[in-house]
Design a protein around this nucleic acid. Structure first.
Length: 531
RNA sequence: GCCGGAGUAGCUCAGCUGGUUAGAGCAGCGGAAUCAUAAUCCGCGUGUCGCAGGUUCGAGUCCUGCCUCCGGCACCA
């Protein structure tokens, strides 16, 4: 089974910010999670480099568009690395291999008769060098930026016959209810389609930094078509000497923000159909991370600087915070104060401390060996029971409900902390020590205790000792299964914890699927408090 | 204007097809415990469930009207 996940390709004319990182982190969670399920995964991110804004920005600096792109693309590549994204490739649309492939595909669209020559007429601003939409116009048909009166201009364009795909799109949406999630975004796309589709410009003359149309080199492709096609073209050259298209298309899932919904949910599938290709398997539309009401702007004070957070707390903490704090698919506020609260209460106190106390008791009471015992039904069942959690989490992640998955996991983190209190292992340990009397009753720490736990040792302990085995086994097993589910979200810390638990596998596993016997070790706090 | 969504504890939000005393997390107050990163666990809320009507034996949950906020309404890289 193959799973191909993409982020949007980021427009190279700008600096990476938390919003970009958010898409990348979410896509990475999906990629890692599906790898854990043993699927054949390919994860793509990259930069979108053509188009007029890049051309203009480069001109302002007196450099070529390519130089501008070459300078900025690495920033996005580094951003992906910083949030510990495991992308298999980083595509740049200025890559000649991408451009060649785009030409092939768009030629097919042309050959299939979905393109025609027409005239685009609109309000043109010579200073912006761009057409303005009716909505953008200032009073009296003026440019909102330059405040000058605009003229009606006509321009030869090639058009893509989007209108011809209305029925196909409606059918696609009807047959695949989860093509676009969350549902409110799906409805938005659907109502957009229902209102009737108009053809869209495919190319323009007078562009310099863009792909030439194969059948009309005077015209350059509108950057959107070039950009969308990256998801498909990358597969043909991402791996040297190999074409992955067969292997990963159309099992493709897009992660994107709501501002580019229409391009992905309407134009993109139509374009693929026009080229005789399958639409992707689906897409998830996420919202914006708001900082103090404003969208991503650097207003005063309480903002999140992703680089700084990663430096101080690690990428795991940033990934967790963003996906936990705002319900994935909706807009939500993030702040430095909010981050600190979640970091301290949930990562350090709830989860990190649960790991610490579990490992500590394992070491202290059982010499670092997970005892042999059965899953405790008390812990396995109930609303926040451990049993079946992995199934639930997989279902949620299949619907791209990442925050929902974290919430499901967290209710079990709390459950395990409660379990510790309910069973008071330290009391059991004391009782065990007392009734064991003379011997090596199990209270002995260090090597002696470890020796005492070798398999085959006669089980002469008291009832308290057996109960302690049960509690410690269940704690170890509970923490282990949660850590496995958290690998996708917080890879570094989860890996460290799993190593400490003597777990080699990274496959998603159910509660109780592993027996006792594993060697564990104490480790420094997963999420240290930094006061 | 048209279409859609939302308005529930100080804060952030859950509440599916109407039915026991409306829930969770955070923050606050009190207590227990000591395995642990002084972490954890337990207890504590007089909430007009936006406003006004209506349907119903019964509505936060359905209907009508109103108020407020938000999103979409075609090229916005």
């Amino acid at each position: 089974m193959s799973f191909y996940v993409t982020t949007p390709i980021y427009y190279v004319n700008g600096e990476p910010h938390l919003g970009h990182a958010y898409s990348t982190m979410a896509a990475d969670v999906l990629a890692r999670h599906h790898r854990q399920r043993g699927e054949d995964v390919f994860f793509l991110t990259g930069t979108d480099e053509h188009g007029e804004p890049v051309e203009l920005a480069a001109a302002r600096e007196g450099i070529s568009p390519r130089e501008l792109a070459d300078r900025n693309a690495p920033k996005f590549e580094r951003m992906a690395a910083r949030v510990e994204a495991t992308n298999d490739f980083f595509i740049r649309t200025s890559d000649p291999r991408h451009m060649d492939r785009v030409s092939e595909v768009i030629q097919r669209v042309y050959d299939n008769g979905h393109v025609y020559e027409g005239v685009y007429e609109g309000w043109y601003c010579p200073r912006c060098a761009d057409f303005k939409t009716e909505r953008e116009l200032g009073p009296g048909n003026t440019c909102p930026i330059h405040e000058i009166a605009l003229e009606r201009e006509r321009e030869e364009n090639w058009f893509f016959r989007l209108s011809a795909f209305e029925d196909d799109l409606k059918r696609l949406y009807a047959e695949r209810p989860e093509f676009v999630v969350p549902e409110h975004r799906r409805n938005e796309a659907l109502s957009f389609i229902a209102h009737g589709l108009q053809d869209v410009s495919l190319s323009r003359p007078n562009l310099n930094w863009g792909l030439r149309l194969p059948w009309d080199p005077e015209q350059r492709m509108y950057v959107w078509f070039d950009a969308l096609l990256n998801y498909y073209t990358a597969l043909s050259f991402a791996r040297e000497g190999e074409d992955l298209s067969e292997r990963f298309w159309p099992s493709c899932f897009h992660v994107l923000a709501k501002d580019i919904l229409k391009f992905h949910a309407v134009i993109w599938p139509a374009l693929l159909l026009a080229a005789g290709l399958e639409p992707p398997r689906g897409m998830v539309i996420h919202g914006y991370l708001l900082m103090g009401e404003r969208k991503m702007s650097k207003s005063l004070g309480d903002v999140i600087d992703p680089g700084e957070v990663i430096d101080r707390f690690g990428a795991d903490a940033l990934r967790f915070y963003c996906l936990r704090e705002v319900s994935f698919g909706q807009d939500g506020s993030v702040s430095a104060a909010g981050f600190e609260t979640r970091y301290e209460t949930e990562l350090a106190n709830d989860w990190g401390n649960l790991a610490s106390r579990t490992l500590a008791m394992l070491a202290r009471y059982r010499g670092g060996v997970v005892p042999e015992a059965a899953p405790d039904p008390e812990l396995a069942s109930g609303d926040d029971g451990l049993e079946g959690l992995e199934v639930r989490v997989c279902e949620l992640i299949d619907r791209a409900e990442l925050s929902g998955a974290l919430e499901a996991i967290w209710s079990r983190v709390r459950r395990l902390n409660r379990y510790v209190e309910e069973r008071s292992p330290w009391v059991l340990a004391k009782q065990e020590g007392e009734s064991a009397g003379e011997g090596d009753g199990g209270g002995a720490p260090g090597e002696a205790g470890r020796e005492a736990q070798q398999p085959g040792r006669p089980r002469t302990r008291s009832g308290a000792g057996d109960q302690l085995d049960v509690v410690l086994y269940n704690l170890a097993e509970g923490v282990r299964t949660l850590a496995l589910l958290l690998v996708a979200f917080m890879p570094a810390s989860s890996e460290r914890l799993l190593d400490a638990l003597g777990e080699d596998s990274r496959e998603i596993a159910g509660f109780g699927s592993r027996g006792g016997g594993a060697m564990t070790e104490r480790i420094p706090p997963l999420f240290p408090k930094l006061d």
